[in-house]
Amino acid sequence: MGDFNDIRASSERIGGFQVNAHCTRWFQDRINEARLTDLGSKGPSMTWRGPRAMNGSRLFKRLDRVLANSHFLNFFSESYVQVLPRTEFSDHNALLLCVGAQVNTMKPLKPFHFEVMWLGHDDFNRFINDSWSTQEVLETNLATLQQNIDKWHKSVFGFVEKKKTKLLARLKGIQNSKAYPFSFLCRLECQLQSELESLLRSEELKWF
Rank of each mutant, 00 (worst) to 15 (best):
R86Q: 14
H71L: 11
L145S: 08
G120E: 04
G56T: 10
R8P: 04
R30P: 00
G100Y: 06
A34W: 02
E204S: 10
N176F: 05
D29M: 07
H71V: 11
E189I: 04
L119V: 08
K206Y: 07
T134V: 07
K164I: 00
Y180C: 04
A101E: 12
V103W: 07
L119H: 10
E136F: 01
K166M: 06
E12A: 09
S202T: 02
S45H: 08
Q28C: 12
H92M: 02
L95H: 09
S11H: 05
S194F: 04
P111A: 02
R65K: 15
C98L: 14
R49K: 10
E88V: 11
V83Y: 00
K110E: 01
D64V: 14
S90I: 10
Y80G: 08
T134F: 00
L192P: 06
Q146Y: 00
P181Q: 05
H71M: 05
E136S: 06
K166D: 11
N55D: 15
P51A: 11
G56W: 09
V160N: 08
D64K: 09
L67C: 00
S57A: 09
W26G: 06
S177R: 12
R30C: 14
R13S: 12
L119Q: 10
R187F: 02
L59H: 02
E189W: 01
S202E: 01
V81E: 00
L95C: 07
T87Y: 04
F76S: 08
F72M: 01
S41R: 13
T47A: 12
W132M: 12
W26H: 13
S77Q: 08
E136V: 01
E33M: 08
L36I: 00
D38E: 10
V81Y: 06
L188K: 14
R8H: 11
V137W: 02
A34Q: 12
I128L: 15
A68G: 03
G16P: 07
T24A: 05
P111F: 04
R8S: 14
V99T: 14
P181K: 02
N104D: 15
G15D: 03
S90E: 05
Q28E: 13
A68D: 01
L95K: 05
T165R: 15
D3M: 02
I128Q: 00
E139Q: 14
S77G: 01
S79D: 08
K162C: 07
F127D: 02
P85T: 07
E139D: 09
G43W: 02
Q193E: 14
K206V: 00
D6L: 07
E139V: 08
G56R: 10
R25W: 02
D6M: 12
D130F: 04
Y80M: 03
P51V: 03
Q102W: 09
R25Y: 00
C23S: 13
N125P: 03
D91E: 11
R35Y: 09
G56S: 02
Q28T: 10
K164G: 09
